[in-house]
Design a protein around this nucleic acid. Sequence first.
DNA 1: TGACTAATTTGGAACGTTCCAATTAAGTAG
DNA 2: CTACTTAATTGGAACGTTCCAAATTAGTCA
Lengths: 345, 345
Amino acid sequence: MSRTRTSIVDIARAAGVSKSTVSLVLQGSPLVNEKTREKVSGLIRDLGYVYNRGAANLRQSKSKIVGIVVNDLTNSFFAELAVGMDLVVQSAGYVQFLAHSGESIDRQRQVIASMRENGIAGLILSPARGTEANDIKPLVESGVPVVVVVRNMPGAKVSTLLSDNYAGAKVAVRHLIGLGHRRIAFIGGFLDTAVFADRARGYRDALVEAAIPLDENFIIHSAPSRAGGVAGVERMMTFPRRPTAALCFNDAVAFGVCDGLRANNIEPGKGFGVIGFDDVIEAKTAVPALTTVSVDPQGMGQRAAQLLLKQINSGQIDQETIVTSVRLVVRQSCGTPVKQAEEIA
Amino acid sequence: MSRTRTSIVDIARAAGVSKSTVSLVLQGSPLVNEKTREKVSGLIRDLGYVYNRGAANLRQSKSKIVGIVVNDLTNSFFAELAVGMDLVVQSAGYVQFLAHSGESIDRQRQVIASMRENGIAGLILSPARGTEANDIKPLVESGVPVVVVVRNMPGAKVSTLLSDNYAGAKVAVRHLIGLGHRRIAFIGGFLDTAVFADRARGYRDALVEAAIPLDENFIIHSAPSRAGGVAGVERMMTFPRRPTAALCFNDAVAFGVCDGLRANNIEPGKGFGVIGFDDVIEAKTAVPALTTVSVDPQGMGQRAAQLLLKQINSGQIDQETIVTSVRLVVRQSCGTPVKQAEEIA
DNA sequence: TGACTAATTTGGAACGTTCCAATTAAGTAG
DNA sequence: CTACTTAATTGGAACGTTCCAAATTAGTCA
């Protein structure tokens, strides 16, 4: 029950050696004699010493901490994204501050400031809606590498990791067209985001490509959540000539759409084709299993973290934009046979 | 593009004042003259000074960082739990290290060690399966307050926040019995957890209470996930005399059970009653809306964080165990009318 | 043995704060 | 003007590391 935690000099004193030597041992330096190393290591164990990384950080003015701010942790897409980051960050010997902005810009600003005070070596940001380049400008200018994921932030001098939303939407709609659908809706998503714009563009272009006239009513925006999907179906049901299939903004919306359809006695996959976007874990086990554009959130999180760590370690903060490719995973929510192999986009 | 970040002495020099004064300003001390305060504050803004909390922590040997380790962030129950904690932790001016153990004890041990080196003021742990009191003993003994949530850890000298799993299961089963069900299954969960034990006990006792003979086969354990729910139904379908309703280990399992039922052409809520546990966000919007035992994960996270902060601030680490009450939220997955009000347990 | 090289070890200074005791400045009462 | 109180300000030590230049010890060769 020692009141004050034992430090490097306590170890030094106990070992009859200088604090510098203990420090060398801690760093695994080859300069220290095998005998003394053993003695010191033993004492470190016995005295229950715990390294004070804060002190080290101060001295070296660098840290082994990265910040991660995610707009919505309760959305499994982002949760998985975070888990992917967690994985590589931990394994690289770093820890994360991981915070949830809840789509609040204020909150996001606050938490980034707080992380900055605590000395992060880098930041991964999945920005809240409406985030501007200015919001992270001071951080960026102070030389801390920043990686923006999922949503892009025009004007920000940072690296960005996006999924190929345009291509994904396009291939999904093509798939529906290939199955004979002509009246295809696009459901969910806020129109003020770049992600929405890209996916909607892919949707439109695929229709144009097949010479299918575009009905702007068929683009139904709503919250990008399960509830939003249900709401979208409600709206859709009021149309005189209803769509026969829908590409959904994301998987959450797609699940909501399935729920909504059932509430209207339409069985998803039978009377109506549903395609999601993201491929969250549940997409595979849901009934019907969801045909969706796989973004591999966990993999994306990993790549983002790797990108950040690369920049941290190299001291090089170049601003590359990486667009990761996506693939359509065909399952059962469009009524296609179960046995069909997963197709590559 | 200054290479070295500006510090308190830079401000002091610029203001023609001593670093001590600047420090006082930073702390909002009433001792400093209004004029100098203004001058200093102005320079702090202009020079883009950012407070180095690490240095302060070193001096004061305390920190404004708490650690949170969660066993599975991809499970929305835990994600919401984390969000609740995030909320109160941030608002109290703290930041969190938030990590995902993925049910790996090794990982958990590692990450806790790492957090310790980085100097956390307290830890909230939702332990990985099989965690032992020993795993956090050194931390606890060094005087860092620890709050364990959701799963309890016998033998650990820490505060614990649990939901009333026993009562929740009991009231749920009573509800099913009240609806006329006699053959009721309990699906999902690993049998080596205390949570499982408590819920199963509630299940059993409710049956006993109604003088319904217990069929041990009806306790079907499987992974506490959506996939586990599907698997549970598969098993159940092989029984000669099948249950007519099920209490599920958690909502994820319940959703899986619904999926599995549909795959067998049974409509949940019509031919079969389903009750979940937790009341995650999606429970309300799913179709059928899930009748479930509401644990209010977000609220629970908040309470856990409050408990921790209380201990941090008071320096008092008493080990209280709080069992939060739960309530049955009746929705549509047992076929009860939509209009029925939510009942209090 | 002496001189030289290689292998270890070691004092401080430094990182950016806080905090205490002490100093200086400004009022105030006699 | 002195003595005293109150208001502001300040230097320096301390927190636990790292890092550098320098010192010590051991080893080797002639």
